[in-house]
Simulated scan of single mutants.
Amino acid sequence: MRESWGGSFEKFNHSPRIVYNGTTSLKDTVAFCTILEFHLKGPDLNIPSDSVCFWMEVPYGKSVQKWPGYHLGKGDYVIRYIPKKAETLQYRFTSAITAINGLKGNIVVNNLWPGKKHSTDYQLGDNWYTDKGSPDLYDGKIQGGKTILKWRKDILQDWAKRWTWLK
């Protein structure tokens, strides 16, 4: 694919998705933007499948983000979460369901997207692309960042020209 100010890309054929049966620990590492699916066991309750019955709480600074979880039936509870940046993530589950309430874990999130292949990944078609993943193309934590940085002067000059049109 030809380079441009929009970046430089390579084909890929999977979108990362990892299924955990239970909580995770600092031994577990995923790429940012991976779909994490936590399956938890609990009682088989008569809860409609579209009803929130537990929460995943993730502390961010002084606030807490809350993500809803659902009962799939037969005592299988699930939550899907997508980490948005490289970090060591702490979380806990809260619920009126005692088998789930208070469960907690950690997971290491790196910025090497799309990461290792897993059997649970979503398979994609032939026309999917991602920023080039070579480590020498990272700009700090930004994958492929250097593929656009070399165009910075051209982009800024183009914007300056467009701003003069507004005068």
Rank of each mutant, 00 (worst) to 15 (best):
G144M: 02
N106F: 08
F93V: 05
W159T: 00
L166T: 12
P114N: 11
I35P: 01
G125E: 15
T23N: 03
Q90A: 11
G7S: 07
K62Y: 04
A99Q: 12
E57Y: 06
F12W: 14
K150T: 13
V78H: 00
G7M: 05
N13L: 06
K153D: 10
T98L: 08
Y81M: 00
K141S: 15
L166E: 12
P135C: 00
T94D: 05
D154S: 11
L149I: 07
I47H: 02
Q123S: 13
L40K: 05
N111Y: 13
D139Q: 09
G69S: 05
D44A: 14
N110W: 00
A86K: 11
I155K: 09
G73E: 07
I97C: 03
E37M: 10
D139Y: 08
V108D: 03
R152V: 06
H71G: 07
S15G: 02
K146L: 15
T147H: 02
I97H: 04
P48A: 06
G105V: 02
K132F: 01
Q90P: 00
T94I: 06
W165M: 13
G102S: 04
T94E: 08
G42S: 08
Y122C: 07
W128I: 11
M56Q: 07
D154A: 15
L103T: 08
A99P: 02
D158R: 15
Y60A: 14
W5L: 11
G22F: 09
D154C: 04
I82T: 15
K132E: 09
L112R: 07
R80V: 11
N46C: 01
G125F: 08
K74T: 11
L156F: 09
M56N: 03
W151N: 09
D126P: 15
E37I: 10
I107D: 04
V52D: 01
L124C: 01
K27D: 12
V109L: 07
L72H: 12
L112N: 07
T120E: 14
G6E: 12
S15W: 09
V58N: 04
L89V: 14
Y122V: 15
M56G: 04
G144N: 03
F12S: 10
G61H: 08
Q157Y: 03
D50H: 05
G75H: 07
Q65S: 09
L36M: 13
S49M: 03
G73T: 08
H14R: 10
K104N: 15
W67L: 08
W67I: 12
S95H: 07
S49R: 13
N46T: 06
F9H: 04
Q143R: 12
W55F: 08
G125H: 12
F93C: 03
N13M: 06
D44N: 14
N111M: 07
L89Y: 05
G75I: 05
L103S: 02
G105N: 02
I82P: 00
P68Y: 03
Y91P: 05
Y81Q: 00
G69M: 03
W55M: 07
K74M: 15
T98Y: 04
C33L: 12
R92S: 06
K150S: 14
H71I: 05
G61S: 09
V58C: 09
R92N: 04
N106G: 01
